[in-house]
């Protein structure tokens, strides 16, 4: 296979992972912020709706998802530096030798 073939093969994988993590996570974060505003109510929203406490809980849940992903990202970098890799073969991530 030629270099171009290898490059395109790698490129669509990077694009897929990038969309999932690089666009998906910010979108979840944005949902969290929206939920937070829904929880705070009043001046936080354009329509000045009354506060909804459930919004806050939702927001913290969504932020937790993002935080978890970021922690995984850092683990990935650190593990890579020590010649290890993150494996998702048991669904939950484990650190294995490369």
């Amino acid at each position: 296979m030629s270099n171009l073939g290898f490059a395109l093969e790698g490129a669509w994988k990077v694009l897929l992972a990038g969309l999932l993590l690089g666009a998906g996570l910010p979108a979840i974060f944005a949902l969290g912020i929206r939920s937070m505003a829904f929880g705070a109510g009043g001046d936080a929203e354009v329509d000045h709706a009354p506060p909804h406490p459930v919004g806050r809980i939702g927001a913290y849940l969504l932020f937790a998802v993002v935080l978890l992903a970021v922690v995984l990202g850092i683990t990935f970098i650190v593990a890579g530096g020590f010649g290890k890799a993150l494996s998702f073969e048991h669904i939950y991530p484990t650190i294995v030798d490369k």
Binding site: L15, G18, L19, G22, A23, P26, A27, F29, A30, L31, G32, I33, R34, M36, A37, A40, D43, A44, E45, V46, D47
Partner: peptide
């Protein structure tokens, strides 16, 4: 560029109706 464009578009879609001051701080 594609990833960032999609991400930006999604963020602005999701946060429609939230006061600007509130979103700026979070982001």
């Amino acid at each position: 560029g594609v990833v960032a464009a999609v991400g930006t578009w999604l963020i602005y879609k999701v946060t429609v109706g939230v006061a600007a001051r509130f979103t700026e701080n979070g982001f």
